[in-house]
Simulated scan of single mutants.
Amino acid sequence: MGIFYLWGMSFSKKVNFDGFIVALLLVIGVAYVFPQLAQWRDGEVLGWVTTVGVSLIFFFYGLKLSFKQIKEGLGNWRLHLLVQFATFGLFPQLVLPFYPLVENAVQHDFWLSFFFLAALPSTVSSSVVMVSIARGNIPAAIFNASISGLLGVLITPLWMQFFLEFEEINVWGDVYWGLIKEIIIPVILGLLLQPYWGKWATRYSKQLSQFDKSIILLIVYASFAESFVGGVFDKISQNYLLALFAGVVVLFFLVYGLIYVLVKYVFRFNREDRITALFCGSKKSLTHGSVFGKFLFANSTSAGLFFLPLMIFHAFQILVVTIIAQRYHRES
């Protein structure tokens, strides 16, 4: 799927839009036209490629982690607690009150897709980049973005198990062990080898980022192909999609606004810490969402449907936070 990312980058330069978003749209189109590619040899080939690819993503991530930078961010515990609370507490609690309003299967899938988004960890690379542009607390951003992904391996499935019918899937055996194998163990290996290969990973970070996005595109393709074959999208309307977009916008600004009130008027953080809390606490990771969804929605034909709010949120957060980061940069 790397070719779609390159096409997306080429197109984005002409229209000034994020290339990865364009690539995601292209991959969804391919999944609609050629869903049978995901079933080649009963899906075993694509499944093996994505499994190895995900493990490599987090191995390279471990290689790029710096113990020194993480150590520098450890002391600011109030900031860390706020960011993690916003990520794993505030987000889900804003979506939970709507669960009693669910009356049918379509509404359940709609709500569950948002709750999945709300339960995910924060982004890593984009959070750090945006904090850097806005001249916030970079070591704290690195620490929070890094720890969020690791905490998500434990917390996200815990939230989701209350509302998912896993049927033949063993939550502790299949989901947690799968996440540990594909995320935690590769990260630890990367950390152990960081003193030896860390400089190489930093030097080729751009190429590794393209590899990461190519694997995400494969996972998205497989999920949407299965959903198209299962006819999941046949039962949703234009109003459903409009409601998805509206929900994403409201959720983002509600979380961002609440964090802003907390950091400025309750905790009275300095400017650098406010920026870090706002940018790290209000974002969600498409990378982790793609990987987690692979296990949480295994054998579910609605997997593509559950990814929609996350993909919209990913695009929206990049657009809005980029504008905000540039404004902070000019004011500094």
Rank of each mutant, 00 (worst) to 15 (best):
I3A: 13
W7S: 12
G8H: 09
M9E: 14
V15E: 01
F20T: 05
V22P: 08
A23C: 14
L24M: 15
L25S: 13
V30S: 06
V33K: 15
L37W: 06
Q39Y: 06
R41Q: 14
D42S: 06
G47C: 07
G53C: 07
L63R: 01
L63K: 01
K64E: 00
F67C: 02
G73P: 11
L81E: 00
V83L: 05
Q84N: 10
F91M: 14
L96D: 01
L96G: 04
P100E: 10
H108E: 07
F116T: 01
A118D: 02
A118L: 03
V124F: 14
S126I: 07
N137Y: 11
A141Q: 11
A141F: 11
S148M: 11
L150A: 10
L151H: 05
L151G: 00
I155L: 15
T156Y: 04
E182R: 14
I185R: 01
I188F: 10
Y196W: 11
Y204V: 03
K206L: 10
Q207H: 13
F211L: 15
K213E: 14
Y221I: 09
A225T: 04
V229Y: 09
G230M: 08
K235M: 11
I236Q: 04
L242I: 09
G247T: 05
L251S: 12
F253W: 15
L254F: 12
V255K: 13
L258Y: 05
Y260N: 08
F267N: 02
D273M: 14
R274L: 01
I275W: 08
T276P: 14
V291A: 13
F292Q: 07
N299R: 08
G304N: 10
I312T: 10
Y328R: 05
H329M: 04
E331S: 05
